[in-house]
Design a protein around this nucleic acid. Sequence first.
DNA 1: ACCCTCCTACGTACGCCGTACGTCGCAGGG
DNA 2: CCCTGCGACGTACGGCGTACGTAGGAGGGT
Lengths: 214, 214
Amino acid sequence: MRSTPVSSPREPLTRDRIVDAAVRLIECEGVEAVSMRRLAAELGAGTMSLYNHVPNKAVLVDLAAERIMAEARPYHVDGDDWREHIRAHARAVRELARRHPRAFVMLATRRLSSEAGFRTIEAALMNFERAGFRGKIAVGMMRAMVSYLLGTLMREVATSPELGGIALSPFEDVDVSAFPLSAEVIGELGTYDHDHEFEFGLELMIAALERYEP
Amino acid sequence: MRSTPVSSPREPLTRDRIVDAAVRLIECEGVEAVSMRRLAAELGAGTMSLYNHVPNKAVLVDLAAERIMAEARPYHVDGDDWREHIRAHARAVRELARRHPRAFVMLATRRLSSEAGFRTIEAALMNFERAGFRGKIAVGMMRAMVSYLLGTLMREVATSPELGGIALSPFEDVDVSAFPLSAEVIGELGTYDHDHEFEFGLELMIAALERYEP
DNA sequence: ACCCTCCTACGTACGCCGTACGTCGCAGGG
DNA sequence: CCCTGCGACGTACGGCGTACGTAGGAGGGT
């Protein structure tokens, strides 16, 4: 029992409670489902009450993005092989993307400045340092890796029809015979094995890093 | 002079004219600026007249996306070195992204099935064939490269504040001293030389491909 | 005990949005 | 000549973000 009367099941509105609700909604129906009215209704509050805790919808979405970012799981590997560390880190990022497919695009197109973002950067730099890269070069390597991760995960998570369904062949109304090389691998082009593709590209990146290894 | 009376400067509404207007608006103010009302106003037509030529806004945007995609410039290089071909192709894609920064995110998160898309795929496959990769492997290589391009261009074009402005340091409210490696390269982290980064990552990818060269 | 201040919740209203639906005028065929 | 069909358009509905004004209750000063 609380000191509040039983007849009032209403928790007081809080920025935290609001952001929580937004995160829930984003994870479950995507950013485009978030509306101030709906959020308020879900919290049992009036629409405009939200604005006492949040200046506008845009920063509310930002807050939600940071909250999601912050729950990125740290990964763990034994040993000192930088390749294993980079693999583990990359897989952790992929894990995050797959757990929050609808939020990922949002995170990806947003500049992150939060503490959570820096934790990730720091961990990545640590791995490149382990590989012998330092300073400017390490940052360049990290950014190339981030680019690959961002791209491959966008392809995996954001471009599938209806978000995550099996990819249908989108090749109905094009005359493929005009493109002989494409026609030769048309089956391959129409199917996606995301696990395999991710690991393939990851090894490609690592191979490139090894070539630059001091 | 036309056969239409002089008092009617109104061209008849056409799907083409509508898509044209949409493309113009997207290029100039981004997808989020597109609205049926505004489009109609810009064409000097009633809002609902658009629906005689286009079933709804979503497919109109799709049509605009394909139109933009279709204007991708073919590139030209002399010689047979697959590295040069891949560089040229990558730079052409970057060119497209930079010419249509606001449309790029839209294109990137859309499955393309158009003829224009296939032209690009075919050209890419040709380049990988030149490098000695065939079939399934070539598709894998191509997808890895696409991932890198997609990622790096998203970072270049879609995440800059207000789309394309100089990147501001987003590190005001974080205590960087808690992250020693990041602190060491904080200047590097806060600045972006997109030309250099793009080429750096591109060479990284090519180095990786060379390692797998048969 | 009283009042004054301030903070939060909330209702109303405005100007946008996409689009379902009904109407009207005109061109072309019988 | 009329009839038919199609394209243009107006109206209206339900949704959106949010500016603004108000009401009520909690806390402090007297």
